[in-house]
């Protein structure tokens, strides 16, 4: 039994040590008075994760509290969003949200959440869709690409992240506008899709502006789906300039459980709006290829309604929705 006692003592000591570690926080009445859980409904390393990590340091500086990032991957985000509203609704649980995911998924099948059940309070950036080729590709301009596609219908293969996603919808939309036929190959996440591009497994990629920023020198962007050129990529034309009406991308924001009090939600909205306004934050995000937007709790619903129309139209064309 000697060993058993020793084992017990060790466990007790461990328990006490952890107890001390927690005895620090919480006297101020001001929200937040303890760490805030920030759940990313995807795995690590993706655009959602990286932008959350950028916010982390600024959140701490602004509020004095930690923003604790954790991952809850599965079902293309559905695992997280279907459980969002059953989490503690005190403002200390927030979750990343993504467009078009939260619009398209619930329309396909019952995935345990509805678009209107998600109480978003901020949409803070988007990654504009971009047509990307490897640096050594013969396609120098978008016109080269279109010409080749017209001569070889269906033979151009394009990697992209998932189906029913922004990349996929951009491919569908562009094929229609340019009157070409290409083959979309879905990969799991942008990382795998870039890997396929760099390895010449596919002809080109429907990626994001972030691909251009992070793989500088190894890839060339033919065009980006933005209103104006991206500050980090001043030489890359927009589709609009070239005569194609595409402004699209994956929009990312943050939501709280539905029953979170309105004043707490407002405070969170203000905090993240302030982070978004910080020039240092903007510089870091734009340097990584993100494009910032400033949707707050007040205009969230209008924004979603507008985007829903666009996505649904594209998804119907692409056969993702019936």
């Amino acid at each position: 039994m000697n060993r058993l006692t020793r084992f017990g003592a060790a466990l007790a000591a461990a328990a006490m040590a952890t107890g001390f570690a927690i005895a620090a926080p919480a006297f101020a009445n001001e929200f937040p008075s303890k760490p805030v859980n920030y759940i990313i409904p995807f795995g690590p390393g993706g655009e959602s994760d990286i932008s959350a990590r950028h916010q982390q340091a600024f959140f701490k500086a602004l509020t004095g509290q930690d923003l604790v990032v954790s991952y809850k991957p599965g079902g293309g985000g559905a695992v997280g969003w279907s459980q969002l509203n059953s989490m503690g609704a005190d403002g200390y649980n927030i979750m990343g949200i993504n467009l078009p995911h939260i619009v398209i998924k619930p329309m396909q099948k019952d995935v345990g959440f509805k678009t209107e059940d998600i109480a978003g309070f901020s949409m803070f950036h988007y990654t504009p869709d971009a047509l990307v080729v490897a640096a050594d590709s013969p396609f120098k301009t978008l016109q080269d690409f279109i010409d080749h596609a017209k001569a070889n219908p269906g033979k151009i293969t394009l990697s992209g992240s998932g189906k029913g996603t922004s990349n996929h919808l951009a491919q569908v939309t562009f094929d229609k506008l340019a009157d070409i036929k290409t083959t979309y190959v879905a990969f799991k996440g942008t990382g795998a899709s870039v890997q396929a591009l760099l390895g010449n497994q596919v002809t080109a990629q429907w990626g994001y502006t972030t691909v251009g920023a992070q793989h500088e020198g190894k890839v060339r962007l033919l065009a980006v789906a933005m209103d104006k050129r991206h500050p980090k990529l001043p030489d890359v034309p927009t589709f609009k300039e070239l005569g194609f009406e595409i402004v699209s991308g994956a929009y990312r924001g943050i939501a709280v459980p539905k029953s979170t009090p309105a004043d707490v939600k407002k405070k969170l909205s203000d905090i993240f709006a302030k982070i978004n306004a910080d020039p240092a934050f903007r510089e870091k995000m734009e340097g990584d290829g993100f494009a910032l937007i400033d949707v707050t709790a007040d205009n969230y619903e209008a924004f979603i309604a507008e985007k829903t129309k666009e996505y649904v139209a594209a998804a119907k064309t692409g056969g993702v929705l019936e």
Partner: peptide, 20 residues
């Protein structure tokens, strides 16, 4: 021993590793 083990792991996960 049971209470210590359960309590200790609870604290470890909930507080140190910040699992909700």
């Amino acid at each position: 021993a049971g209470a210590v083990i359960v309590g200790g792991f609870y604290l470890l996960f909930a507080r140190v590793l910040q699992v909700p």
